[in-house]
Nucleic acid binder design. Structure first.
Lengths: 331, 331
DNA sequence: TTGTATGCGTTATCAG
DNA sequence: CTGATAACGCATACAA
């Protein structure tokens, strides 16, 4: 029976490897050896057992700061996203965290908050931080920021390996679907956010439908997308492809305002398959992507890089079209 | 002109305070004094200037691990949330981060992922981590996990101060609104997630409408909420109050499936005012809460606690009803 | 098989 | 006003 003293209760009972050593009747280095798994064939089973027991009894937890200082690695990576308020990035983060946890890593999130001014400060904080590597979502960083990074949803050719969605295939299956329904007048509700993934969408749309495909550029929120998309509804189009489900939501609002019915008067296709796509009326046809897997894959790539293993310059993840009720033949 | 050597480019140019000292022609301790702002009246202005200049030229960045080891504080806090995929928590995180950044803190996110099994592991990782304090959203932690914590959306009386929304006022204004419209038969679409904030809603509903208020308990996703809420639509109710907008989304889906019109056949009120509430058809009347401010307030409380300042046992934040088009008089 | 000694980069105490 | 010097807790080369 162990009766904790007042001191133990009120002060953080920081127990160190020295405490464990004392308790187990061995030296501190032995404790370190055992607890970092390097005891194989060096420490007797009996001693090892004693050390583990002492550590457990004392509730020993290695001090990460000390370990990081000594080894030079923090076993932590940073994930930089444009807007954590967007559920898509939440999923990416979750995937990265799940994968990281298995590898004994911690991922710290840096939310740019769609705020360019903020970005500098965020990155600053991050650089000062103990991240061994970076997961950059649609972000570039000052050169020299870190040796190890993976870029997500960027175009290859830069300094770091990239992991991205097969955006071209996404556009293709959306357009294929619309065309097979009989649509010939298709518009593009594009994102006004300057990121390579949206360039890819634009280029693919033009490749498929010509350089003069009707286009509007919309901001990444429902209200803004609604006003930006409105002019598109006056164009002579029977269907629109939206760069993102958020933008599609804006189109729904604009259509409602004008008394246009979806899909009767206008077919709509989104991108991402966010949760709310199914509660829209009618449920949105959209390009589904596995955001969690994207995050997990990005982390794996970074982990490999940190371990000194080779990492492919580009990995692309498949996407697929989820057909719901926002698309129908033109009338 | 400084021509970087190969080594400087390929290896992380980890510059330490010793390097700065050498460059400035002073001792390392002088550098430390200057750069941690403790130079007031101890170091000459000339020396201080020289040190700063050297630090800037070299791009010096204090090593956080070393600092944490020496001082025992990491200037970092952890935020534990049930589900980062929910935009609400994204907003809370952003608020906390904004506030933390101003105070020179970093916030690391721990996403429980609605996964009870995962929770233990997450918490484990977190405890090993360098967090000075904890922001716990709807979470309890093993006692002794940390000395310093703030609980968010919990009931007071526990070990830690709490910051929460004025849920009772939220329920009240929702019910007031519905009653003033003429509704007398009001149902409750409750969350089946076991958290104090939902107990509060339930209790308040009963206080207002009697213990036999028609109730269903629904899971926190559209599809699940839809099936759980369906039976409610067979009840003799003309309006429902939903514990959350997500649940309200489920009600929309169920209503659509049965050919019920909102608000004609059924008035619906949500809670949280998530972004998608406005793109629903019709736009959702809901209790608006300032999630970012909630996060910011929670961090401030924790910072005060860490600084040894007193923290109120409970802080409650106001909410307000946003009336849109999902509510109308019963017919 | 185990223990001793050393240093990671900082901060902080104390002499000078 | 400034410079030695001693920890902080851990990992590891080397000695025993």
């Amino acid at each position: 029976m162990h009766t904790p003293s007042i001191a133990e209760i009120s002060a953080p009972p920081r127990v160190t490897s020295v405490d464990v050593a004392r308790r187990a009747g061995v030296s501190q280095s032995t404790v370190s050896l055992v607890l970092s798994g390097k005891a194989r064939g060096r420490i007797s089973a009996r001693t090892e057992e004693a050390v583990r027991a002492a550590a457990a009894e004392l509730g020993y937890r290695p001090n990460v700061a000390a370990r990081a200082l000594r080894t030079g690695v923090a076993r932590s990576v940073a994930l930089v996203v444009p807007d954590i308020t967007n559920p898509f990035f939440g999923r990416v983060l979750r995937g990265a965290q799940r994968s990281a946890q298995e590898a004994g890593y911690t991922v710290v999130l840096v939310d740019i908050g769609n705020n360019r001014a903020w970005e500098a400060a965020s990155v600053e904080a991050l650089l000062a931080g103990p991240a061994d590597g970076l997961l950059l979502f649609e972000a570039d960083l000052p050169p020299g920021a870190s040796e190890h990074a993976i870029q997500i949803e960027m175009t290859p050719g830069g300094k770091f390996p990239v992991v991205r969605l097969d955006v071209e295939a996404g556009v293709d299956c959306a357009i294929d679907h619309l065309q097979s329904l009989g649509h010939t007048k298709i518009g593009h509700v594009a994102s006004n956010f300057d990121a390579p993934t949206f360039d890819l969408r634009r280029d693919r749309m033009r490749a498929r439908l010509g350089d003069d495909v009707p286009t509007v550029a919309a901001p990444f929120n429902f209200e803004g997308a609604k006003t930006a998309a409105a002019p598109m509804l006056d164009e002579d189009v029977t269907a629109v492809f939206c760069d993102d489900d958020i933008l599609a939501g804006g189109v729904y609002m604009a259509a409602r305002e004008r008394g246009l019915s979806i899909p009767g008067d206008l077919s709509v296709v989104g991108f991402d398959d966010l949760d709310f796509a199914r509660v829209l009326a009618p449920p949105l046809t959209t390009v589904a992507v596995d955001a969690e897997r994207l995050g997990a894959l990005a982390f794996s790539a970074l982990a490999a890089d940190l371990a000194g293993e080779p990492v492919p310059a580009e990995q692309v993840m498949p996407v697929s079209l989820t057909v719901r009720e926002s698309t129908a033949p033109p009338r």
